[in-house]
Structures are given as structure tokens and as C-alpha cells.
Design a protein around this nucleic acid. Structure first.
Lengths: 337, 337
DNA sequence: TTGTAAGCGTTATCAT
DNA sequence: ATGATAACGCTTACAA
């Protein structure tokens, strides 16, 4: 593969001049510039990104660490991130499949070895301390979907608790009093906060949720089906079901339908996330919009700008997003079972 | 950031020795090795991947070029690819969002600048010639979802034509004679081949499709709805609808349902791809399984192995996959309209 | 406007 | 078993 040296030789100039042409540097005669460009094209020259990263001590890439690409939620997030990278013509280094803290850590370390200075990471497994440490070392380190007070200006996150409140308010307004909850068996912050929001809001209206009407399962369609199955088996009474996410809601809904229970006439179902599935399933799912793509875009922009202006770290700005309700067909006024 | 030199100084040894320790090279005293490792840990040493790539003239990364990450189909593909990279502890360089030939080309070029030798690319926009050229230059260049004869051993692809035949056979066996087709308005190879498979098989049974019963639209849910709308408006007669993909099938189905036409009792609907949506929608979609994750895995393995054993390029092996039918609820024996 | 030369962090080939 | 030292391809003062 042709190097800068080959070009210089062929053009009868020095390395420096070629380098200037490559980088659109100033102080190069128009004639020489044109000639060199011509020769580069002829010889199929391609700059060596590694050499460049080495000498400049910087890698203009955006590192991305995600839990799971095949999940539509993460795919949408990745899409948002990728769109800003593409617009700025920046290469994305992706690591997904990290669900354990070890894998997450390794992913970040690999990115660091590439001297990647901008990265948006989704981490549920690593400790606050570990992440704070990374944030110190990496100028453009942005956390998505997680809030850590000490590095608040590095966090782009969703107010899950507020989401829970919104759901409860909506259901309350429609006259629902017996409410079931289907949540994730992984009781990390997201599901816990959402449930707490629902419960607190309900409590404010003098309603408590029957312990019998809470089911935990895997946060996917199968989990939703199973959880609903269990609810039905136990004979729990409810006119509305709050699911941890859309996938579980869809699963719960199909199980309800399979049992001849009409949604939303007999039972209302509400999801969370507003992934594409929410529009596909029947009845169409009423859910909370998780503006994940928008958040991904914000996170990517933040990471990139922090990585370049290494000074502007200490802002007081904060990046909290609040989910809003998307009314479709799966929720109605309280019926009688 | 600490370099190999810093470590060498701190340990009172030469660069070479430290390098040997890092690479688990032989010929290093156990005591020295231990001491150096200790110091590396203390100083938080991280090898510089760029320097390494420069001197070794190779980048142990896997480049991935996709059209659109937010599409569940591509997300699944990416997931397959990523899983093998992760297993082999290889960094993924991702470029998505390439729908035009310029973007695709740029994505590949960027990867080349990083001296990436293994890549799996999904390209619909670039010409055969351009791709053949890349395949020549890049040892581990693998094309997914595309077949080019001259570089057949670099192609991991699906037999769309066979898929069309399978669909037709299935419908024929159930007594369907009046069949409508909803295809993509982008008449690139995939939709064309699928339709041709259907038509040829039908023709073999003496059945031709009414030109009136063919609709093209965008290959998504909205497109499916619109196409079905048009079919209905035109008063086309059919007992079964063959859709280009699951999204269109789902759209068509919901439009049918909205018009009070029962699926599959009055009209059968069959999709293609078997994305997650096929299991979510109601009735559950009968469709053809596109083993995209499996294919992604194959492609990634191929790319990586080709990139390392630069000799084994000229095999006669070929990587064709055949879609198989997944029977669910949306297809039944021919009814009367 | 152009050239010279040092150096980025590693690996790898020689010596020792 | 360990050390010097020359690359790798590029950018960037500093000279000319």
C-alpha cells in the first residue's frame, strides 16, 4: 500500500509537502497541490489512520458500549448515536453484548487502548466508583441511562420515577383502582424506580397494590406472557396492568387475548419505551415514550464535544429526559372483570 | 498515559523486555516478568493499540458496514456478527446508515484507512465491479446478502428465488389460486427474485397472477397498509397475499382486519424474514425464516479467518442459505371471498 | 513555498 | 535472559 513517502518520491517533493496537501494545510503552491493530488489518486493512496492517531495522540472515533444490539431499544439508541457520528464523519467503535461488569470493563478498556477519547456507554453492571474513575480518565466519557451524582454533567438519563407517576395518574383518571404490575426480574434501578413511581402516585390517591398482583419475569415477551399467566392462575383481580416495558406488555396482552379477555374493554394494558412493536401489536399499545434516539444523539454530541474542548467539563448542565404518554388503543376507562 | 518506556525505566529494564512481557513472549525471567507486571498494574499501563497496529501492519478488528441499524433485521444481523467478534475478543468498527453508494464507499474506505483486514459489508448500492475491486484489495472482505459470481466464495447470501418458490408451493398445496403480491417499490434483486420465484412456481401449476393484483410500496408497515388499501380499492380478487417482508405483511393484515376481512379465514397472508414482529402481531404471521443471525455469524467467521490465513482465499466453497417456512396462524386453506 | 528531521509507542531483529 | 536499535507512516516545529 502506497505511503506518503511513495507519493513524495513520485511527485519529487518532500514528505512534509504531501502531508500538507493531505491535511489541506496552507502554504502549498496550487500547482504542486494539484499535482500531488493527482498522483495520490493514481497510486490509490490511503492515509494510515493508525499512524495518524499515533502521532497526533488522538483518535477521532466515537466509542459505544451497549448491552445488547438485537434488542430494538438498543438498536434505536445505536441508531441515534451513529447518526451524529456519520454526520461528523467519525468512525464508530462498537462493543455490545456487555451484561456483566467484566465484559463492560473490558469493552471500555479496549476503547481506551485505541486512545478513544469520546465514548457513550450504557452500563448497568459497573459500580458508580468504577464509572467515576473512567469519567476522570476519559475526557468525553458519557453515561447513558444512568445517573451518578458526582458526574451529573456526564449523564444522559431518563426520569423513570416520573414515568411511573405519569402512568399511575393516567390510569387513575380513567377510574382504575385495581392495578397489577408486571416488572422485570432484574430489579435494577429502572424497574424499581418505575414501580415506585406508580405505587407512590397510587398511594397518594389512597390505593395500594395487592402484593398478589405483582409479578416479576424476564423483561421480554415470554416474560410478559408468563407473568400474565401467573396473575391469571392466582386469580388476581385487576382492571389494568402496568408492564415494565413494551415487550412484556405485548406478551401480557397476547396471553390475555388467548384467555378470551378483551383488551382494553376488560383489562387495560400499558407499556413503557414506545419501541416499534408498540405500533405493530394489536390492539396498538398505549405506552410511555422513551426518547432514546434523541438521548443517544445528545449523548454522542456531548461525548464528541467534551472530547475536543477538553476544558468545558465542569458545567452545571444536566441532561434529564422525561417520558411522555403515547395514547393508543390498549388502555380504556375501567371496566368490570 | 504511561508508555512502555516509562515501565522500562521504572523497572530498570529495557523496552524490549517489557514488550516481551506484554506479549507473553518467551525468554523472560520469572522474577523480572512478575516485577514488570506489578509495575504495569501500578502505573495503570495500557498498550497503545494504534502504535501496535502501525508497527505490525495489521489491525485485528472487524469492520461492519450496514444499511440501517434501527431496522430489526439489521440489528439481528449486527448481533450475529458482534457475537463472534466478542468471542474472539476483537473490536468491531461499525458503519451504518449507508444507503447510497457514496456513503457505502466512504464507509469501506474509512475502514481501509484503519487497515482493517476483515470486514463484512452489506451493500446494495455499489456496483459489482466496485465490490470485486474491494474484495481483491481486502483479504477478509465478505459480502452479506448479495451474490456476485466472480467472488462467490466471498458471498454469504440467501436464495430469495427458492424462497418465492416455497411460498407458492405452500399456497398451492392449500388450494389457493387467486394470489396477490405486495412487493417493495425498490425493485432491487431481493424483491424481484422473490416475486419471480412465486410466479414461476405458480406458472408451473398453470396459474398466472393478475397484473391488477400486484402492488408496490415502501417495504415497511405503512407500505403494506397502503398496498392492501389499493388492492381493496381496485377490487382485486384474491384468497392469499404474498408480502415482500414481515413488516409489509403486518401492515396488509391490519388493513384487512380494519376492513372486516378475516385473516386467515377469508384471506391468507404470508410474510418473509421472520423478524420478531412476526410473532408479535395478530394473527401470528406465517412467514419464511431468513436465518440472518446465523448468516451474520458465518460471514464474520469467514472474514476473520480469511484475514488471518491470507492464502485460503481460493476455495470453491459457497455460502448459500435457503429460507424455510415457519407456519403460524396467518395462512389457511383457500376460502371464498 | 518547500524541505529537514525529530518523535509518537510499539514490535522485532540483532547482538550480547 | 536481556538490551540496542531500526523500522512502521505520519505530523509538525524549525530551517531554508
Amino acid at each position: 500500500m502506497a505511503t506518503i513517502k511513495d507519493i513524495a518520491n513520485a511527485a519529487g517533493v518532500s514528505l512534509a509537502t504531501v502531508s500538507r496537501v493531505i491535511n489541506n494545510g496552507p502554504k502549498v503552491g496550487d500547482a504542486t497541490r494539484a499535482r500531488i493530488k493527482e498522483i495520490m489518486k493514481e497510486m490509490g493512496y490511503r492515509p494510515n489512520a493508525n499512524a495518524r492517531a499515533l502521532v497526533t495522540q488522538r483518535n477521532p472515533s466515537l466509542g459505544v458500549v451497549l448491552a445488547e444490539l438485537s434488542d430494538p431499544f438498543f438498536a434505536t439508541l445505536a441508531h441515534g448515536i451513529e447518526s451524529v457520528a456519520r454526520k461528523k464523519d467519525i468512525q464508530v467503535l462498537l462493543s455490545s453484548g456487555s451484561i456483566q461488569s467484566k465484559t463492560e470493563m473490558k469493552a471500555i478498556d479496549t476503547l481506551m487502548e485505541h486512545r478513544c477519547e469520546a465514548m457513550v456507554v450504557h452500563s448497568k453492571a459497573l459500580s458508580d466508583d468504577a464509572l467515576i474513575e473512567y469519567a476522570k480518565e476519559i475526557p468525553g466519557f458519557i453515561l447513558i441511562n444512568r445517573y451518578i451524582e458526582q458526574i451529573a454533567n456526564r449523564c444522559v438519563w431518563l426520569d423513570n420515577y416520573a414515568g411511573g407517576c405519569t402512568i399511575a395518574k393516567h390510569l387513575l383518571a380513567l377510574g382504575h383502582k385495581k392495578i397489577a404490575i408486571i416488572s422485570s426480574q432484574y430489579q435494577i434501578d429502572d424497574p424499581v424506580l418505575r414501580t415506585k413511581g406508580v405505587e407512590d402516585e397510587l398511594a397518594a390517591a389512597g390505593i395500594t397494590i395487592d402484593r398478589n398482583a405483582i409479578e416479576l419475569a424476564t423483561p421480554d415477551q415470554e416474560g410478559g406472557e408468563q407473568a400474565m399467566q401467573n396473575l391469571l392462575t392466582k386469580g388476581a383481580e385487576f382492571t389494568a396492568v402496568v408492564a415494565y416495558n413494551d415487550a412484556m406488555a405485548a406478551g401480557a396482552m397476547s396471553m390475555l387475548l388467548d384467555h378470551g379477555i378483551s383488551v382494553p374493554n376488560q383489562v387495560s394494558v400499558i407499556g413503557f419505551d414506545d419501541v416499534i412493536l408498540a405500533r405493530y401489536c394489536r390492539p396498538k399499545l398505549t405506552t410511555l415514550k422513551y426518547p432514546i434516539e434523541m438521548m443517544g444523539i445528545k449523548a454522542a454530541e456531548l461525548a464528541l464535544s467534551l472530547a475536543s474542548n477538553k476544558q468545558t467539563d465542569q458545567t452545571d448542565e444536566t441532561y434529564k429526559y422525561t417520558p411522555t404518554i403515547v395514547k393508543r388503543e390498549s388502555v380504556a376507562i375501567a371496566g368490570h372483570q
